[in-house]
């Protein structure tokens, strides 16, 4: 599966479009991580726990999107975009979407 946020895959021809595919995941923070983060928030700096959490969550939403694209019979997803939104106190949604295509 080829992933790109360009509108095409350079050097390859798109032969079929399957429409928009998306994947999302909503993650809440772990209590332990939250306590550590609030301590870290006193002095500022990088909150590594959150960076890792969001990274994992984003990988998961990409995997979900790829699975949907595979079900369509696509072998690439182009024009990928990411979006993040706060759905509830302490939880955020990580959303990824793109167009599933078949390339030669």
């Amino acid at each position: 599966m080829e992933l790109t946020n360009l509108e095409c895959i350079p050097g390859k021809k798109i032969v079929a479009h399957y429409g928009v595919v998306s994947g999302s995941t909503v993650r809440a923070k772990h209590v332990g991580r939250d306590i550590m983060a609030s301590l870290k928030n006193l002095v500022g700096g990088e909150l590594k726990g959150y960076t890792e959490l969001l990274h994992e969550a984003r990988q998961e939403s990409i995997e979900r999107m790829v699975k949907i694209a595979e079900d369509f019979g696509a072998n690439a997803v182009v024009n990928i975009r990411f979006a993040t939104s706060n759905v509830a106190q302490g939880a955020s949604e990580l959303y990824v979407y793109g167009t599933a295509v078949r390339v030669e």
């Binding site: 983060a37 870290k40 928030n41 006193l42 002095v43 500022g44 700096g45 990088e46 909150l47 590594k48 959150y50 960076t51 969001l54 990274h55 984003r58 990411f82």
Partner: peptide
């Protein structure tokens, strides 16, 4: 893709 979370101090 790469991201970073940075907190502000008190």
């Amino acid at each position: 893709t790469e991201s970073v979370v940075i907190g502000q101090d008190y």
